[in-house]
Write a protein that binds this DNA or RNA. Sequence first.
DNA 1: ATAGATTTCAAACTGTTGTTTGAATTGGTT
DNA 2: AACCAATTCAAACAACAGTTTGAAATCTAT
Lengths: 220, 220
Amino acid sequence: MSAETKVQILDAAERLFAEHGFGDTSLRAITTQAKVNLASVNYHFGSKKQLIQEVLQRYLTVLMPAVDDELQNLLRRQPSPDVGQVFSCLVKPLLSLNLVHPDGTAIFVRLLGRGYSESQGHLRKYITFHYGAVLRAFVHAVHLAVPQLSPAEIFWRLHFAIGTFVFTMASSKALSEIALADYDQEVTVEGIIARLMPYISAGVGAPGTEVSPHPLMDIA
Amino acid sequence: MSAETKVQILDAAERLFAEHGFGDTSLRAITTQAKVNLASVNYHFGSKKQLIQEVLQRYLTVLMPAVDDELQNLLRRQPSPDVGQVFSCLVKPLLSLNLVHPDGTAIFVRLLGRGYSESQGHLRKYITFHYGAVLRAFVHAVHLAVPQLSPAEIFWRLHFAIGTFVFTMASSKALSEIALADYDQEVTVEGIIARLMPYISAGVGAPGTEVSPHPLMDIA
DNA sequence: ATAGATTTCAAACTGTTGTTTGAATTGGTT
DNA sequence: AACCAATTCAAACAACAGTTTGAAATCTAT
């Protein structure tokens, strides 16, 4: 029954973390919802911090290799991809999280948003450390798609894209409610992702403006 | 000396809120940094919640009327603006916050990011209630710039843009450090905003794709 | 069936949070 | 100078956080 308890904790934790954030979700709230004893979190995971890590890990170990596969597939059949194609490599892997877990895509992507804005760069470092190769492959593919942009420009644009994505997903619940009330739109995660792609593709692929980062030095 | 204490609390609070978020900043941390007594927060502001509100208010009362002015100026001399011109209406008002307060732009925009992702829609409602007219004026201007997009599509794109903006600014400190280390770029808030503009303009102005929000209904 | 390891449980512990209290101090007005 | 209101202050408050404890219960393997 050990595995049972661990899974119940992870399932309850990911939902509460996604909805209220890591800091504002207490272990008591998690164990109550998971119907397990309070102490079992520390018994099975050691600490709250490690619980958070395992919650994210469960998704990352599925997502990242899938993204890597998609990228390799794309570049094999299309050595000069466009931006839309590169970003589309994220779609299927993201949606496949729905098969791993009901509502998995939405939950993971909200967790990602929380992790990026709450953990002061902790999550970023974790991903960079454990999945650096996949990240580099992705950046490389983007570079193939928009070779006219400098590496620095690509760096910024990619983080803009992450921001667009992560923020939208973190607020997706509220946004969906507004869309339903104001525009009679029933919204799904797939729908939001589909709407995001043109925006991100156009943004990342926008004409480069190698802005001087030292406006005052133009005078000197 | 009353005004003195209030201002010191607000100044310390906005910096700590911007850096660590609202939930993870204790009143004790604020009062220590402000060099005032712990109880003075409740004396002058009533509660932590109201302190947060006043911190944001101090900026919104400067920013929003300025944005309104810029929008009216633009539409008067350019009844059919493009997307870039509309979003440029945000730039000067945002940078003017730097005059109100040292580093005001960066602080405010980080607060905005925190508020949007942490306060579960509380901030959004506050802004909508108090500055609904300015928001509508902005949406109207965007509609003039991209009349081919449906109101629903504009709604989504604007929130994508907010996400891009707010997330970038919330992580601007970390991003600036990376940019400096990896690309030898000294980065300022002005520089980031300048880089953001082409991305957001291209994203919001991207060709519309009125995606079916009910993918399964296509089959039925 | 019994011994030993694993897991659960209620309870307590330690630290921190926002808030309140009532006395001490300060400021302005007459 | 004397009074009253406004402000500051140290201290305590209750609620809640994550974690630890040691005994009870359960499972596993001989």
